[in-house]
Structure formats: structure tokens, C-alpha cells
Design a protein around this nucleic acid. Structure first.
Length: 560
RNA sequence: UGACCUGUGGUGUAAUUGGCAACACGUAAGAUUCUGGUUCUUGAAUUCCAGGUUCGAGUCCUGGCAGGUCAACCA
């Protein structure tokens, strides 16, 4: 986890530093507080890395807390997937908490506020309450129930708790300021009636606190020092502080809310609503589809925890709106995968090659290095024989300048194999290249030429009789535009879906690939990084493309 | 338009708090290489605008401009 430790500073760390320097806090206590109503995505990963990264930097603590105050949207399956994702990212929480653990305490505080004349039961409809709040530009109108006797509010609130009133018939409101320019201070709702079973408290409660009456208090109860959240909660901060003013003991640690900008990525979407739409509309295959930016999707695509932490570190923390180029995410995986993944050879689009001077029934094992970046990964052997496959695009009938690969009369090196020279090109009646006849130089075994002769190109290959077919799933960006949400009037973000975001192919791989277990990262040399999908069965190996290798040749040739 | 927040290379993030604008990704050129990968070297490119204070402003002041957030019994 070293790479996520503070290599750079940010405004939150500066606040923490000064809090420690001034003696306000000795160390930090942060928390990651998702609502268990969906799957985590890369945007959450940024928040997770921030909160747990601070824990690491300051030798502090960090909780995982489920903000489960709305039983109509929350489920246990989400709790489990969130726990799994946070752990997978490599973080350990100090305490596993639930806002629902604090329902009793929250209720007591609510009664206290009523008794202090700072809260009242409002029997108006939601529509009326909303109307009275008016607009930010003009003062709101006070509810006719606002100044009812405290005893009456208390009686009604207890009845709400006992289930004596219908959903929506009344709410508990904080009595703050109906003229405030901040809408959240115009007598916000603290409790609503919801006769719905809760994933943890079952049917015990008929009323549930709203976010604003639960979040700050939960932070306070847990002893959180710095409560980090995204920018849209900025306007909630005065309310966060107002509730704390009412309940906090001056001798106890009081949390401070600090907001930072959420993550946006090009060519994808991060909104839970839109992600849900893609999954439910079957535009993608579930929450772990490798094309969406959920943690589970990235995991299945072949992203590593280290790569996501590295990405998150490079993205930084600030208050201004930002859109990160997906290229940075791709760079981060390559960076990690280059170091850890074993190399293998596989041909995506085969072209047959016959080595005319190689004996008909002979085959031999050639030695290959598993990972040139990590020699401890050892070696393996690859079978070589008279008939091979090479990549279609590694041969050109009429090669342009700077094309280093195979062409009529040219010599190239087969990776870990021999030098071969192309003598004959077999074409069909339409001029399509069907087969190449080459000769090999037995002296160049292993790829070295004793006479010091150099070849510019090295290409990958597999032995035709030994090659194993594998299913390759090639993924491209899900959307064809940088900002999929930017649509003209009447348009829909789904109009921007890239129809070719998933292409399924069969590749021919060297036989050792068959032995690689599911959920392993590999590199197919000169091609890309891949991940063995859990869909793999005994007779069908499924391999996902995580990200292609950088390719300066195709970039260059495209330009010309 | 009310309140609040934010404007630094193409994209992000820094700048010891008033002292030579830097780091990463991307990009260009070159070197290395049994992966056109990796690695290495070098280059191009930046403080929203207008005034002001100051020996000196990305940083402070004034006034603009631009973008964002807020009007669920969601979080």
C-alpha cells in the first residue's frame, strides 16, 4: 500500500496537519460511509483511498459505515458486495458500523430537541411543506404547526414511533430558519414515517431519520475527526454543524465536515441511476460487466487493487470539478501489470506458415522467459514444429517504409524461436494471402544469430498442431464520446453507446495457456494484458482483454 | 437571478503561504531493446479577464467573467 501513502499533499492533509499541530487532534479518525443501495464504482474507490489513505498516513483509524437510514432502497446483498470491494482494494476498517445501530440514540436526541423547542411535528403534506420553502431567492413561509406546544409534538412523535399514523401523514422537523438563503436550514425534516422492514432492524421502527439527522451524529458517536464527503454536501454543512451544536458534549471529539470534488472519467458514466439503467436494460451483462466502472467490473476486466490505488493517488484531491482522462486509468493498470504478469504467446488472427526446410514430423521445445521484468517468474517451454500460425497483420505483401515485420523475401525473428525468411506467398483467386512458405535458419535457435546478423522485427507465433483455442473477449470503451451525458435536447446518454464495445474472438494460444487458472493476469506479448475470466470451464477458456499494450507503430501508421 | 463553492499547460494535481510556476498522464523527437512493450534522454505547451498594492503577485485587494451546487418525507 506504499504507493497510496502521501507522495503529494492536498488541502485536506493540510487541514489535518494544522489540527494536529494545534493539538486539536492527536491523530485522525475517518470513515467511508456508503449507502448500501448499489454497487461501488471507481468514484467510490477515490473516496475509499482518501479515507483509508489518511488512516495510513497519520497512523489513525478508519471505519466502514453503512448509511442505512432509508429501508426502501437498501439491501443486505449490497452490504456484502461493498465489504468485499473495500477489502479487495486492500483496506482494513477498524469498525464495521451501521447508522441503524444508532437509531435509539438518534431517537432520544430527537425527543430532546422537541423538549428544547427546537423541533416540531408537522402534519402538512409533503407538497405543502415543499411549497412553503419557496425558492432560494425569497424567504420561506412558516408552517402553521411550527409553534404548536412542545407536549403536543412530543405526543405525536411518540405516536409516530408507535406506528399510530400513516406513512406521509406527518414528519418531525427541526425549527431553524425559514428565511435562510440556505434551503437546508428552512426547517429540514428529521424523521419520516416509513412502515417498511429494514435490512437490520426488521420491523422495530416505523420512523426513520433522514440523512441530515443521522450522518453528523453518527460521525460524532464514532469519534470521527474529519468527515470527508463530496462537494454536493457543501450546503449541508451548516446543518451538520447545527445538529452537532444541539447534541455535542464540548468535551468530546467533534467531527468536521470537509468536501472534495468527486471523480469524473471520460468515455464513461458514474451515476448510480445510469449504471442501473444499463444493467437493467441489458445494455451490459450485470454489475460486474468489464465495460462499466464498478469495482466488480474493473476487477473482472483485470484491474488490480494496486492499479486502482495508484490511479487514485495520481488523480489527487481538490475542490474543483474535474474530468480525468481514462487514459490515466489505463496507464495505471499497465504500470502494475507490466511488473506482475507472466508473458504468453497467442495469435488473435491466424495466418498459416509452413517452414519448408523443417522436418515433417519433428517438433521441439523452445525455452521462453515468463516475465522479463521479473526473472524470478522463471521459464517455460513452447513447442515448435513445421507448421505455425503468425498474426495476419504481421505480414504485408507490399510493406510500407518502417514496417519491420514479414513480407516477401524478408527475414524476421520468431520470438524465442528461429529466424525465418519468407520465400513464397500462397494466395487464393481473389489475391487473399492464405499461407506463407518460409525457411528457417537452424543456427538461430533461441533467437540469436551466431554471425551477428540483425533483424529488425520479432513476431509472435504458435505451433499449429499444438495451439489451443481460447475465447477472447475484447473490450472497447462503452461510449463513443468523451462525455456520454452530454446529449442534445430529447437525447439520451444511451444514444452514445459504442456498438462495438464487446467483440468475442477465438485466439490460438501456446499450450501452456491452458494451465493458467481463472482470475490470473497475463500478457499476450505484443498484444495486451489479459485476465482469465471466471466463466472459464474445462472445455472453454475465456480470457478478457484488460487493456492493450501501448502501440506506437499503429499510431504512427494511422497518421500517415 | 439569492446564498455558497471553484477557475493554474491538452487532462489532472502542486507551489515551503508574497520570492526562478513544478510533478504525473498525454504529446513530439531521439537512444536502448529477442515484445514497435519496458527503460532512458530531450523538447513543445500553463496561472480566467481588467485594474490596484508591492522591489516582487498564481498567491493579497477591488471589479468583472465563466463553471458548479442547493428548492426529495433520497443519500
Amino acid at each position: 500500500m506504499k504507493e497510496s501513502e502521501n507522495t503529494s499533499t492536498n488541502f485536506i492533509k493540510q487541514i489535518i496537519d494544522s489540527d494536529i499541530e494545534s493539538g486539536k487532534h492527536e491523530t485522525t479518525y475517518t470513515r467511508f460511509p456508503p449507502e448500501p443501495n448499489g454497487f461501488l464504482h471507481i468514484g467510490h474507490a477515490k473516496a475509499i483511498c482518501l479515507n483509508f489513505g489518511i488512516k495510513a498516513s497519520y497512523n489513525g483509524k478508519c471505519n466502514l459505515r453503512f448509511d442505512d437510514t432509508n429501508p426502501v432502497k437498501e439491501e443486505d446483498t449490497y452490504v456484502e458486495s461493498i465489504k468485499k470491494d473495500v477489502a479487495w482494494l486492500g483496506f482494513e476498517w477498524n469498525n464495521l458500523c451501521y447508522a441503524s445501530d444508532y437509531f435509539d440514540q438518534l431517537y432520544q436526541w430527537a425527543e430532546m430537541l422537541i423538549q428544547k423547542g427546537k423541533a416540531y411535528v408537522d402534519e402538512q403534506s409533503g407538497e405543502d411543506i415543499s411549497k412553503q420553502r419557496t425558492t432560494p431567492q425569497e424567504p420561506g413561509i412558516e408552517s402553521p404547526y411550527r409553534n404548536r406546544p412542545q407536549e403536543e409534538s412530543l405526543r405525536l412523535f411518540r405516536e409516530m414511533k408507535e406506528g399510530k399514523h400513516k406513512d406521509g401523514s406527518m414528519v418531525l422537523r427541526a425549527k431553524i430558519d425559514m428565511t435562510s438563503p440556505n434551503m437546508h436550514l428552512r426547517d429540514p425534516i428529521m424523521y419520516r414515517i416509513l412502515k417498511k422492514s429494514h435490512h437490520r432492524t426488521g420491523n422495530k421502527w416505523k420512523i426513520y431519520p433522514n440523512y441530515d439527522f443521522a450522518h453528523g451524529q453518527s460521525d460524532y458517536i464514532e469519534g470521527i475527526t474529519h468527515s470527508l464527503c463530496t462537494l454536493e454536501f457543501e450546503v449541508h454543512r451548516p446543518l451538520y454543524d447545527w445538529f452537532l451544536d444541539q447534541i455535542a458534549d464540548p468535551g468530546k471529539t467533534r467531527p468536521r465536515q470537509i468536501e472534495f470534488a468527486r471523480l469524473n472519467l471520460t468515455y464513461t458514466i458514474m451515476s448510480k441511476r445510469k449504471l442501473l439503467e444499463l444493467v437493467e436494460g441489458k445494455y451490459v451483462n450485470g454489475w460486474d460487466d468489464p465495460r462499466i466502472p464498478t469495482i466488480s467490473g474493473l476487477r473482472r476486466r483485470g484491474y488490480t487493487p494496486a492499479s486502482i490505488r495508484l490511479f487514485s493517488d495520481r488523480v489527487g484531491i481538490a475542490k474543483r470539478e474535474n474530468t480525468i482522462d481514462v487514459g490515466l486509468l489505463e496507464w495505471a493498470v499497465r504500470e502494475d501489470l507490466n511488473k506482475i504478469s507472466q508473458r504468453r504467446l497467442a495469435v488473435m488472427d491466424p495466418l498459416k506458415v509452413v517452414i519448408t526446410n523443417y522436418p515433417e514430423n519433428k517438433s521441439e521445445e523452445l525455452e521462453a522467459i515468463n516475465n522479463p521484468e521479473d526473472l524470478s517468474a522463471g521459464k517455460r517451454t513452447m513447442p515448435f514444429s513445421r507448421e505455425l500460425y503468425i498474426e495476419q497483420k504481421d505480414f504485408m505483401m507490399d510493406p510500407p517504409r518502417k514496417f519491420y515485420r514479414l513480407g516477401p523475401g524478408r527475414e524476421v525473428r520468431l520470438r524465442y524461436g528461429y529466424f525465418i525468411t519468407c520465400n513464397d506467398v500462397i494466395q487464393d483467386e481473389n489475391g487473399n494471402v492464405k499461407e506463407l512458405h518460409c525457411t528457417y535458419d537452424p543456427e538461430t535457435k533461441g533467437g540469436k544469430s551466431p554471425d551477428g546478423r540483425k533483424v529488425k522485427g520479432t513476431i509472435h507465433w504458435v505451433s499449429k498442431p499444438h495451439a489451443v483455442p481460447v475465447e477472447i473477449r475484447l473490450y472497447d470503451r462503452l461510449f463513443s464520446v468523451e462525455n456520454p451525458s452530454d446529449v442534445p435536447e430529447g437525447g439520451d446518454f444511451k444514444d452514445n453507446i459504442n456498438p462495438d464495445s464487446l467483440v468475442v474472438n477465438t485466439a490460438l494460444a501456446e499450450p501452456s495457456v491452458k494451465k493458467i487458472p481463472p482470475e490470473t493476469h497475463i500478457q499476450f506479448e505484443r498484444n495486451g494484458y489479459f485476465y482469465v475470466d471466471p466463466d472459464t470451464t474445462d472445455d472453454n477458456m475465456v480470457i478478457n482483454e484488460t487493456v492493450p499494450l501501448r502501440d506506437s507503430w499503429s499510431k504512427k501508421s494511422k497518421k500517415k
